[in-house]
Amino acid sequence: MNALAQEIAAMIAADGPISIERFMMLALQHPRYGYYRTKLPIGAAGDFITAPEIHQMFGELIGLWAVEVWHQMGEPTPFRLIELGPGRGTLMADMLRAARLRPAFLQAADIHLVEASEALMDVQRANLGGTPATWHPSIDALPEGPAIIIANEFFDALPIRQYVLTGEGLCERVVGLDANDALCFGLVLTSAPAATSAAHGAMLEVGAAAQAMTRDLAARLIAMPGALLAIDYGYMRPGSGDTLQALRHHQSDDPLRAPGEADLTAFVDFAALGRAATSEGAAVYGPIGQGKFLARLGIFERAASLKRKATPEQTAAIDAALARLARPGPQSGPNASMAELFKVLAIMSPDLPVPPGFDAIAGQDA
């Protein structure tokens, strides 16, 4: 049992079982032992790979998407270009490189990054190569003003709660201690109103933190023009089942085995995010599969252009990236396809046009 597990076990021994939500918060954000406080998680030497690290095409297309949305907004100067959970800074660097096609966009962009990890901030600064930017520990510190907000693999790391309807009634899944004082999962009766729709025996996950953050961001887009683009793995429509997972060295791990040493995530309920945004009056587009979204933005044309000047090795890398980012394929394993597993949702100020890559509102673009 590592140091954080011992601390959590002592907390449980003193006060009783804790929710999955509380456990995730401690495992990821504990000020001394939390995963995002101590690890460099992304890349071959880390625990997982994100789309921007697979190939530059991903970030370039998101950058061009942002340029077009800025044009739809009336090209405000200045505007806030915000990334939530910017990883290694690769996505923002690729976006800005593609945006050189519109120098006025770069001149107007006031860059803000929401990041809790000091170690990742250092990597982001290096990869941005001196580009002026401001870092914030949370969205609460973001300045007002027109904004384009990018959230790639951000919402999946926000904590969830889990519920099961049993013969004894509605139960919440919690973390407690077994007979040997080791961390274990258990169930406790609850009357949580958010989970009353759970089918008998099925596990229902509720991402209250993600929904609350979405409402806050949507409210911002009502007060000031802008857009939020969320890309993550999850459900297009409400689902059930246990999606809590731990990743360590690119392999699945027991979420309770070594808290703080593995990444913890859960599937994003995009339908719930959409409802949260529309409750504030924002316009919602999608969700749409990542493969379809990137195809509509022109990833296959971009790949063909790159391959015209590529070496055989570079061509093979481009084809491999296309297969993983945009072509349907296996959804598990080291080279799993992200095309259908990952979804894309746009939340917009209600007076803005349909954003690039979408053609319907409120989940009609499946």
Rank of each mutant, 00 (worst) to 15 (best):
T134K: 12
A210S: 15
D351K: 13
L113T: 01
L217N: 01
N180L: 09
A27W: 00
L325D: 06
D319M: 09
P312S: 02
G281E: 11
A10H: 11
A362K: 03
S19F: 05
S349E: 08
A336C: 13
I111A: 07
Q364F: 08
T265H: 03
L229S: 07
R257Y: 06
G46D: 10
I49Y: 06
A116D: 10
P159N: 04
T166P: 07
L170D: 01
A199Y: 06
A277H: 09
T196M: 13
L273V: 07
A277V: 09
S279Q: 14
R296W: 09
Q211H: 05
Y285H: 14
D359R: 12
L244F: 02
R88H: 13
D156R: 11
D253L: 08
P193Y: 08
L187C: 03
C184F: 04
A362Y: 07
V69K: 04
N2T: 12
R308K: 13
A27K: 06
R22I: 07
L221P: 03
R161C: 06
F342R: 09
D178H: 09
G167D: 15
L170C: 05
H55F: 04
T90D: 12
S332D: 15
E280C: 14
T50G: 10
W70T: 06
A93G: 10
E83I: 09
L28H: 01
S19T: 12
R173D: 03
G74S: 12
A258K: 04
I12Q: 05
A316N: 06
I347K: 00
P86K: 05
A208R: 12
A277S: 06
M73T: 11
A151R: 03
R308N: 10
D269H: 08
G89R: 00
L247S: 07
P312T: 09
L256Y: 09
P355N: 10
V344D: 09
I318C: 04
Q29L: 15
A147Q: 04
H71P: 03
I148A: 02
R102I: 13
I54T: 15
E205M: 06
P334G: 15
C184K: 11
A202T: 06
I148H: 05
Q6R: 13
N2F: 05
I222Q: 12
F293V: 11
E144R: 14
A157Q: 05
L26P: 00
P193W: 08
P225A: 12
T90C: 12
K307E: 15
G281C: 13
L142N: 04
Q364N: 13
T214L: 08
L96C: 13
A246H: 00
L61R: 01
G130W: 12
E118S: 13
Q251A: 14
I361N: 07
K307R: 14
R37Q: 13
S19D: 04
V174F: 02
A295P: 00
L322Y: 09
D365G: 11
E118L: 14
